[in-house]
Amino acid sequence: MFEFCTDPGQLDRLAWMACYLTTTKHMAIYWSVGTVLILLAVTAPAALLMGFGGAMAARSRIAPVSWLGRAYIMIVRGVPDIAFFMFFVIALDQFFEYIRHEVKCPGWTEPIRQNGNFLVCPEAKLPLSSAPQYIHEIYGFTLAVITFAIIFGAFAANVLYGAMRAVPQAQIETAEAYGMSRRQAFRRILVPQMWVYALPGLSNLWMILVKATPLLFLLGVQDLVYWARELGGAKTPRFTDYPHGDWRIWYFLALLVFYLVLTRVSEIALDRLMVRLTRGQATSGGEAQRKAMIA
């Protein structure tokens, strides 16, 4: 990075540190901060969508759909997320490839499962084996997002399901009295009002999501924890210009600070959002705001 870094063995402590922290390998850990933030930014709406679908399914008047929704919520919530992380990515990958295989290679006669291998026709491979590395990485990242969305979607479904039931029944009845259909009442009355009831649960869920990101390396994404372990481990001079002892504790300290800042900032932002959403709502919080405004 810097010009004076050509012979790190000769540098004084400060310059050595500057060079050490800017090796190309170190850039990877800085990039992985971005990976974590992007994952959060993409997963949150995806999980919310899954959650909305799950909550609607659980509320459905068609019994099998309702069972499906409830089973999804119960099963995913009853199992430690790490158990899913351990096999979901491979399962999803095989699932997508299987579907593509069925679509693209109808004439394929060889079995897909043979000798313990999972072999689809070359055209169905995901990504294609000729694809450049960055496509593979994006695909891996996408699988991680889907896995997170499925798991946290169940938690979100639980929160939204509760929030939908928390909207006072009288509101729905009023809507019906105005001649709205069930669907209209859902869209115009229930959904806009449920957010204020859902927000505390969703904020909490966001915090859990943030704190689950160190498990990203289980999903094959080289994340912060992966690089902290790799960079922090003791290095001998034979394989690097920057030999050092076991520095993992410093790297993990940096991670700790990163997560503390991230959760603290989220907390403040979510508190503000709550104030915004409470405005004009028929809750004690909304009432308090109204009184404060009059006074």
Binding site: L126, P127, L128, S129, I135, I138, Y139, F141, T142
Partner: peptide
């Protein structure tokens, strides 16, 4: 990223030289 991922999911076409 989303667009590229979508592209990867629906990508078709002849195989270039295998990597």
């Amino acid at each position: 990223i989303a667009a590229a991922a979508l592209g990867a999911l629906v990508a078709t076409g002849a195989l270039a030289q295998d990597v």
